[in-house]
Amino acid sequence: MKSIISKLNKAFESRVKLGIMSVLVVNDYVDFNTLKELIQTSDGNLASHLRILENGGLIKVTKQFVGRKPKTTYKATSLGKKLFKQHINALEELIKKK
């Protein structure tokens, strides 16, 4: 039991981070507003969670201009996808053990 719990990744503990990663593993890339709409949290809260994930190398941030408007898109890195899948597997194992 203990070994499975240790497989749970601390990086995905918060609900917001869990939400961000869930969206990014099934979509090529997603912009800030779409994430906000899906996760339903404040700009500041979302941005700070995104920054932590970016610093951990789990997501990649791209800034570009669409016309005159800046647009920021987010993408899961291969490391991020791998770790998130491990996290899901660990969660599923834990539920089965019940």
């Binding site: 609900r15 869990l18 939400g19 869930s22 969206v23 593993v25 099934v26 979509n27 997603v30 779409t34 899906l38 996760i39 899901i88 969660l91 599923e92 539920i95």
Partner: peptide
Amino acid sequence: IQDIKSMMEKS
């Protein structure tokens, strides 16, 4: 797990 699944679908 439920949240992850629903978020994947919804997005």
